[in-house]
């Protein structure tokens, strides 16, 4: 990882943004918050955090004209980290907001945990990666979610956890990492994961000379 890995964090809402920024700083990165299309196109490394409702978050991405930009960069394999609702936004949709289309990069939709467990799932759950994972390792991660994917889309390596049956804890493909859990709240294990993602983002060809001031663009 370079001495100061600049990361653009998409402003998807208020909650938890400070924790994401603090986590990235602890991992050695220099994060900037933006919802400007130009900044997000130019970002060498991008974090898509997400809290709140699926429909409201998609509305915001549409209003900021970010839908195609985000989908394109994930399809192109540019360094991107999606967190919690961020993972679900990459999918086709969610039972939380019926009729609202997601970014459609992942061929999977989110459904709600069943009535047999306490919802939301709040706490630390054991994450077990498939053999193909390079960034994800076994360990405990902190989850705060009511919806989840129960099937992994083709072409991605998945890590799994158990709550009302098996669900997708995270997905990875090259320098693209999508976590249902919060790496920024998952202690030393989460911090190590953030560092591996930043390192993969360097190796993954995300670095471009033009990225340095990309974040200083007026918000939409």
């Amino acid at each position: 990882m370079s001495a100061a890995a600049r990361v653009v964090v998409v402003r998807t809402g208020t909650a938890n943004l400070a924790s994401v920024l603090a986590g990235l700083r602890r991992a050695g990165a220099v994060p900037e918050v933006s919802d400007a299309r130009a900044a997000i196109v130019a970002a060498d490394r991008l974090v898509l955090p997400g809290v709140g409702a699926f429909g409201a978050a998609m509305e915001r991405l549409i209003a900021c004209e970010l839908v195609d930009v985000l989908a394109d960069r994930v399809r192109a394999g540019r360094p991107t980290l999606a967190v919690c609702l961020g993972l679900q936004l990459l999918g086709t949709g969610s039972a939380e907001s019926p009729g609202v289309a997601g970014l459609g990069v992942l061929a999977a939709g989110a459904t709600r945990f069943g009535a047999g467990v306490r919802v939301p799932q709040l706490g630390w759950n054991r994450v077990t990666p498939e053999p193909g994972c390079r960034l994800l390792t076994e360990g405990y991660a902190y989850f705060a979610n009511s919806y989840r994917l129960t099937a992994a889309p083709p072409g991605w390596s998945a890590a799994w956890a158990e709550y009302d049956g098996r669900f997708v804890a995270a997905l990875e493909r090259g320098p693209v990492l999508a976590c249902q859990f919060h790496p920024e709240l998952s202690g030393a294990w989460g911090l190590a994961l953030l560092r591996r993602w930043l390192a993969a983002a360097d190796v993954g060809g995300g670095r471009r000379a033009t990225g340095a001031d990309a974040g200083r663009v007026a918000p939409c």
Partner: peptide, 23 residues
């Protein structure tokens, strides 16, 4: 780097937002 819940004196959405923005 673990979750933090903050309470005491949260009266409205604005005071909640200030705490969330602080971390």
């Amino acid at each position: 780097s673990i979750p933090l819940t903050v309470g005491g004196g949260v009266r409205d959405a604005d005071s909640a937002r200030a705490l969330l923005e602080a971390g």
